[in-house]
Amino acid sequence: MKEQDEKKRLPGNENEAPYEKGGPARAGVLPSRGLSNLWPVFFAFIGGWAIRVIGNFGAIAVFFFLAFINIFRSKQIREITSQVYYIGAKSSLIVILVGLFTGMVLGLQLFYTLVKFGSVGALGSAISLSLVRELGPVLTAIMIAARAGSAMAAEIGILRNSEQIDALYTMGIDPVRYLVSPRIAASIISFPLLTAFFDLVGIIGGYLTGVVLLGTNAGTYFYRVQSSLGMVDIRGGFIKSLVFGAIVSCICCFQGYFCHMRDDGFGARSVGMATVSAVVISCVLILVSDYVVTSFLM
């Protein structure tokens, strides 16, 4: 609650403050000097928003740092293992399905595109490179964010609202260490593995449409896959999946952990809103960070 109080005092949260300072606008009447008085209101809004966003990013960074260093504390192996099972193993089916159909669609689309240029032999290269470099890490991360990330946010949010997080604190257990660190560790472990799975199944999907259905030469397909994929491509995809794993787990846990401080709802609604925010922000940040990481890798 104290944090809530403090939050309320932040300039960005004082919705009425600019109008109070504006005088007549407080009573619903436009200021007498017209538009010139709206500029301070506009800048106050932008400034408040910027401060809030920067503050949130700062809070997420501190949250991630605290959770990350606690991964290496004792008694974490059991929790990390169970989270790897939940986030990783239990997500494998959906990742396989998405990977298979993504590969199959790629096979179809690229086949008809490459036929126009008379270079259908490059089908294996095109499919494997696009999967390993981009689609594999991104789609895997989005799928896990939807499946496991939403569950993380909702579960932690419910623990927060039912005072179970406070109960952990009173028992001398660090809630971040117990709840957040294993999830971040498990995500960092699971994302690259599932991405590899996705890539492999996607290449098989491309084989099914490109070779089995449309009749491209099987030997050419696999030769192109092998010859065009270099360690640099695999390493890039691996780095991306590590980054996505950290981002998705951190955002989802953060949203759930602080759902009681949301402005847009309390109780069950706050958990729902936290879950929505967790998935949306994760997906957006996956794409933004994909661009950033790709530009560094190129």
Binding site: S162, Q164, A167, T170, M171, G172
Partner: peptide, 16 residues
């Protein structure tokens, strides 16, 4: 100090 203290919550706060 805190480790010496136990707390029984009003709504129990059991890990469900």
């Amino acid at each position: 100090h805190r480790r010496k203290v136990a707390y029984l919550f009003q709504n129990n706060a059991l890990l469900d």
